[in-house]
């Protein structure tokens, strides 16, 4: 049964990490921007859960949907206000801008809410347990996996069978040529940011669903995980991000079990050391992807 538990835990963790990574790569694929503000979209989702869940009688399902929408809206807004004006000027400027946006959002919450963490009331369904194939597991694990499967299917359909999806894949491949097809650059980029924020919002629900609290730094770990997972999977492919997410979930769970207790506090360092080694040996990641390195200008 331990194996069964390990598998379900890994799948659930991997599902969440896959969504985290996918959100980052959606923007990276098109803009070649490593968006340091990405974790803050998760934070915005988390604080929406906290505020609406604590102070309003809005039903839980609606709260979650609003949280996801808020994250997507924040992502879109940062694109509009901060990234769009610097986009055509320099990739480095955009990278630094994303870090500044991250610091700004984090400290805005620090200023407006509190530096201390806040408890988020959760619906009962998150803490209930179910038995699947004889394995008892928290309901939220099952919810995570189901949501991830649904979202990944939906996104696959979107990317494969809609014009918008085709245009987004084309833009990630050759941005300028895509514009020469008449596809507006702003449209593609905005949609990428909205999807990215949407995924961050979904992640925020499950992230907070595990910890039942939010704090201004809550976005940091998802950001790191997105970095690691995309690096493992390959920065230039959406499939790679998903694969990387699951690979990271597996690595994390395996290290948690295998590392002796005295070294567990070094787990993050181990994770990163593995990632750095991995990068040095295989900089293109597990899935090579066929996007070019073209800059947006």
């Amino acid at each position: 049964m331990i194996l069964g538990e390990f598998i379900i835990n890994t799948l659930s963790l991997g599902s969440m990490y896959a969504l985290v990574a996918l959100g980052l790569v959606f923007v990276y694929g098109i803009l070649k921007l490593v968006n340091f503000a990405y974790g803050e979209y998760v934070m915005v989702g988390g604080y929406t859960l906290y505020v609406l869940g604590t102070f309003t009688p809005v039903p839980w399902l609606a709260v979650m949907i609003i949280a996801v929408l808020m994250a997507a809206a924040t992502s879109y807004l940062t694109e509009l206000v901060a990234f769009r004006p610097v986009r055509t000027k320099s990739l480095d400027a955009m990278l630094v801008t994303s870090f500044a946006v991250s610091v700004l959002l984090q400290n805005a919450v620090l200023l407006l809410v509190s530096p201390r963490s806040r408890a988020v009331p959760l619906p009962a369904i998150f803490s209930q347990s179910v038995a699947i194939f004889g394995v008892v597991t928290p309901m939220r694990n099952v919810l995570t996996i189901v949501t991830a499967v649904l979202l990944l299917t939906g996104l696959t359909l979107l990317m494969k069978y809609t014009v918008l999806g085709i245009a987004m894949r084309a833009a990630a491949d050759k941005f300028t040529t895509t514009r020469l097809m008449g596809v507006p650059a702003n449209l593609v980029i905005s949609v990428a940011f909205i999807i990215s924020g949407f995924l961050a919002g979904v992640v925020s629900v499950f992230w907070v669903g595990r910890s039942a609290s939010v704090d201004p730094l809550i976005g940091f770990t998802p950001l790191l995980i997105a970095f690691i997972a995309t690096v493992i999977g390959g920065m230039n492919s959406l499939v790679g991000a998903v694969v990387g997410g699951f690979a990271y979930g597996l690595l994390f769970n395996a290290l948690s079990i295998l590392l002796p207790a005295s070294l567990i506090s070094y787990r993050d360092a181990f994770m990163f050391a593995i990632v750095i080694l991995f990068l040095l040996l295989k900089p293109e990641g597990l899935i090579r992807g066929n996007y070019t390195e073209e800059r947006v200008g």
């Binding site: 491949d173 050759k174 895509t178």
Partner: peptide, 13 residues
Amino acid sequence: FTSLTVAENMRLG
């Protein structure tokens, strides 16, 4: 677009 199929290339056109 090398990663897109011929049909998808045409559709974007």
